[in-house]
């Protein structure tokens, strides 16, 4: 059973509950978080999550839309991209 990885990025002004809300949405969609890292530079919060979307209960486009809406509610920008683009650009 191979994984299908995607990268979620959250960028914006830091506030309480960003990771909580994103993780909640992912759990509701049956998406497993494989790795997570974050930095805060000059009040700008950047979080990157590597997730496995193989068993996601929703289509990729719906998931993308839900994450985008969540971002709007939280006042941050959330995007999800399939992993292949990073592999293409950063690995030989």
């Amino acid at each position: 059973m191979s994984e299908q990885k995607a990268i979620i990025s959250v960028i914006g002004v830091d506030r309480v509950g960003i990771i909580y809300n994103v993780s909640k949405l992912l759990a509701e969609n049956n998406i497993n978080i494989l790795d997570i890292s974050q930095t805060i530079l000059k009040d700008i919060f950047t979080m990157i999550m590597i997730v496995d979307i193989k068993n996601s209960s929703n289509d990729f486009s719906i998931l993308k839309e839900e994450l985008k809406n969540l971002g709007e509610n939280l006042g941050v920008k959330i995007d999800i991209q399939k992993e292949d683009i990073f592999r293409a650009m950063h690995r030989l």
Partner: peptide
């Protein structure tokens, strides 16, 4: 066999996102 996969450095992911955004 794909049991261990090379991950990405935070900087690499951040670079791609910055390039686009």
């Amino acid at each position: 066999k794909g049991m261990i996969e090379m991950g990405f450095a935070f900087e690499e992911i951040e670079e791609t996102i910055r390039m686009v955004q």
